[in-house]
């Protein structure tokens, strides 16, 4: 299953908008697209409002991006995560690693305050 990835910038912060299903098939592609966008001391928002399914491999890519960002003194926020996906993340312990916001706007506010 293919995913669509769009990159934009808002208030100097990179916003990656993802749509589709993130699973073992699409996760490596997402990883290779997003990793180069992480900058030293930079912030990044992953807008996942269009993501309908996230497998174990998908969650691991998110965590990997987060780790890479932290290693660069950067920050990552997730926006628009579907309730079921958020629930899976909570139950499996992934959620607490992330800054989670309802919308991209909220994520921008949170990251700019931090």
């Amino acid at each position: 299953m293919a995913i669509q990835v769009e990159v934009s910038t808002r208030n100097g912060i990179t916003v990656v908008t993802v749509a589709g299903e993130i699973d073992g098939g699409s996760a490596p592609g997402l990883q290779s697209q997003v990793l180069p966008l992480l900058q030293q001391n930079g912030a990044l928002i992953l807008d996942l409002a269009g993501v309908t399914y996230m497998s174990s491999a998908g969650l691991r890519v998110l965590l990997l991006l987060y780790r890479q960002a932290v290693a660069r003194n950067g920050r990552v926020a997730l926006a628009g995560v579907a309730e079921t996906i958020k629930d899976t993340m909570a139950v499996t312990g992934f959620l607490k690693f992330f800054t989670v916001a309802g919308t991209v706007d909220e994520a921008l506010t949170t990251l700019q305050q931090a």
Binding site: S55, S56, D87, T88, V91, T92, G93, F94
Partner: peptide, 18 residues
């Protein structure tokens, strides 16, 4: 709860951790 997603390993580990 995540058995249908095949994530029982992570869920159980998270239980232990908590």
């Amino acid at each position: 709860a995540t058995g249908p997603l095949g994530m029982q390993v992570d869920e159980f580990k998270n239980l232990v951790k908590e």
